[in-house]
Structures are given as C-alpha cells and as structure tokens.
Design a binder for these strands. Structure first.
Lengths: 206, 206
DNA sequence: GTCTATATGCAGATAGAC
DNA sequence: GTCTATCTGCATATAGAC
C-alpha cells in the first residue's frame, strides 16, 4: 500500500523501491510491485529512472553505504580498545534495528555478485586493508599490555561482527523459533547492546 | 560445465540444481542454467521433475534438513554443558565448511517466505519450542551451580549460533576484505573450531 | 508528469519426433 | 530417455495520447 493522493516524486518512488528490493532482492523484485507500492504506474518508474538496473544501483549504493561506513567509522575512531568495541556493538545494533533487512540485502547482493564489493567500496573510498591492519595492530598491542587475552585479530573481528549482525540476518528464523513478535524482538535487541558487549568483554578480558 | 558423456539421472540433475539454486536462490535460478550445468536439455528437467517449484522444494527440504537437524541434535544431546557447546560449534563449522552456501541459501529462502520454516520444520518433526526451553533450563541450572556466569539463555544461544554461522553467510565479504583465497578461508575456519569455542567459554566462565 | 496501449524478449512449460 | 520445436505467459521497456 502507499498513498492515496498527489505528486509522486523520485523520493517517494525510491522509498517504495527500497522496500521491494530489500525484501525480494534484485531478481525477485518486480517493477509492478514497486509501482503499486508507490501508488503509481509502471511506466512512470521508467520515466524517473531509466530501468530496473539503474534503480537498483542507486538503492544498492545507498544501502551499501549505510551498512559499511558506520562500521568503518567506529573501527577507526580513536578511543581505548574496549570502549571502541562498545561503540561498534552499540552502533551496529542501533542501525540494524532501525533498518530491518539492510544487512541481509547487502550481504545477499554481494554474494550474488562479489565484485560489487570492490566496485562500490572504492567508490565510497573504503579501505578494508587499512582497517584490518589497524585493528590487528591494536589487538596485538592490547594483548602485549595484558589488557586482553591472546587472540587472533581476525577471529575477534569476525566474532564481534557476527554477534551484532547475524541476529538481524536470521531475524525471521529467530523470531519464529523463539516465538517473538516484532516488539519482543526489538526489546531483545535493545538489551543485546549491553549483553553482547559484556559477552565479548568477558571473552577477551584476562 | 558438467560432464561430456552418457546417462543423466535424477541424481546428476539434482546436483546441478543444487548448485544453481544455492548460488542464485529460487528467483534468480534459471532452468537453462541448471540444464547446462547438468549437461542436458531443458526439456529433460521437466521430464524428471514436473516444474521449477517441484525441483526447488525437493532441494530446499534436503538443505533445510542438513542445516537444522544437526544443530538440533547437538543441542539435545545429553552431555555436560560446556562439552555440548564444544560439539555444537565443531559440528556447525564442519558442516558449513563442507557445504558452501548452505546457510545463506536456507536463511534467504526462509526470509523470502517465512512459513516455509513452519512447514518444513513440522515435516521433519523439529520442535524449536522444546529445544529452546531445554537449553534455557540448562543455562539456568549451570548458572545456579556456578558453572557459568549469569546470562540470558536467548542471548547466549544467539551468540553461539551467530559466531558459527555468520562467517559463512558473509563469506564473500570476509574473503574479499581479508584478502583470503579459498584455502586460507578454510584454514581459518578450521582453526575457528577451537578459537570460537574458547571465545565462548571465556565469555561465560565465571 | 502521468497515464494506456503496445512492443520485445525471455523463461517456464508442453508436444511430439526419434 | 533425450532431443528440437513451439506455445504461453509474464516482466521489462517503449510509444504516444493527454
């Protein structure tokens, strides 16, 4: 459903397209459904955006950015290590709670076409190499200073990311299995900001 | 690519279909591609399996089973708590290392149509309610006995599952970002069987 | 800008020869 | 069983009226 009256705009159409693309993915999305969701005609989609692929790319770039820039920022911020972890966890869960389907969408479309990661990553100036190196060095330092237990930086990185992101990727499964409604799930994620952080801290503190 | 000679069989075709469906998902998969992958003709697919949906359902059920039954088994086995965690982690990572794309496929197709979880879950006699209750009780007991720190069972469950599964779901992203080839990734997952286990244990041990 | 009508192409499915 | 040829329908895209 959409609106009943008046002027569609690029903005309105894009919002509709976001909903459909993030729910169905590129191949599952239908122009007809986007049009209906926006309350307009199929032809109008082509008037505003040349074709499906163009539309998709615009949306994907936005979502890609939403998904990655925050993490990169949090990782590169210049605060004490444990504090940094706190802010990464907090930021990730906050973002994903607000944007249901974001993580799943980005991950799936990259899996379909991995070169998009390079392509859009460069376009946004993201540099995973630097980020990873930096993180690993930081881990090493903190290990040497006895702040945290010895651990492989890559594994720690994967653990943090996994704990934050997976529940949203598998949200339909988790909700069903744990018999939660939307609000219960949201509450659980809200609590998770602390629970996940403490879990990680306990895991790495000597 | 496929084979150059001789008798296709249901088996051969199904293997081809698995590859294509798990890579592309239902909506992205093309009968033509499956046929090519199997080295046969499109019409023959329809001879063996009525239509695309029939084919998909057969494959999905298999993959669903592969994905879930192992976990459920591991969770319900009757061994000490920490040992159980060890076997869950070990089992999950082993399975997913062997079946690239399994987790992503199952999660994505359930996200597309969440009722498949109920539908196929019942068909296989899985009972998430019981499993979850059992796990939570176990957590509670271990907390009371001072074996592990106080923790919300649902969060712990999500943490364990996340840590095991997410790296495979996001494999294309992780491989690219960490600049790993297939073998390096496999090695890292092999090591992860222990690393992940220790991480979890450290997180929950008092 | 927004619509209706239409063109084009492709994917799923069937008919029928061998 | 396995193929070629063909039908059908749907999804994307365009033309053109208003």
């Amino acid at each position: 459903m959409a609106k009943t009256d008046s002027k569609p705009s690029e903005e309105l159409i894009l919002n509709a397209a976001v909903k459909v693309f993030t729910r169905k993915g590129y191949s599952g999305a239908r122009m007809e459904e986007i049009a209906k969701e926006a309350g307009i005609n199929r032809a109008l989609l082509h008037y505003y955006f040349r074709d499906k692929e163009t539309m998709f790319n615009i949306i994907f770039e936005t979502k890609f950015k939403e998904f990655f820039t925050g993490i990169f920022g949090a990782f590169q911020s210049d605060v004490p290590f444990l504090e940094k972890i706190k802010s990464i966890v907090d930021h990730e869960i906050t973002v994903l709670t607000k944007h249901p389907g974001l993580a799943r969408f980005v991950i799936m479309e990259i899996a379909q076409q991995p070169d998009r990661l390079i392509q859009f990553g460069q376009k946004l100036g993201l540099n995973p190499r630097t980020m990873l190196k930096h993180f690993q060095k930081e881990v090493q330092q903190n290990v040497q200073q006895g702040e945290i237990r010895p651990i492989d930086g890559r594994q720690l990185l994967m653990n943090i990311i996994s704990i934050c992101i997976y529940p949203f990727v598998a949200k339909p499964i988790i909700k069903t299995m744990m018999q939660m409604d939307e609000n219960t799930f949201m509450d659980l994620m809200e609590k998770r900001k602390n629970d996940a952080y403490e879990f990680i801290i306990n895991a790495i503190r000597p």
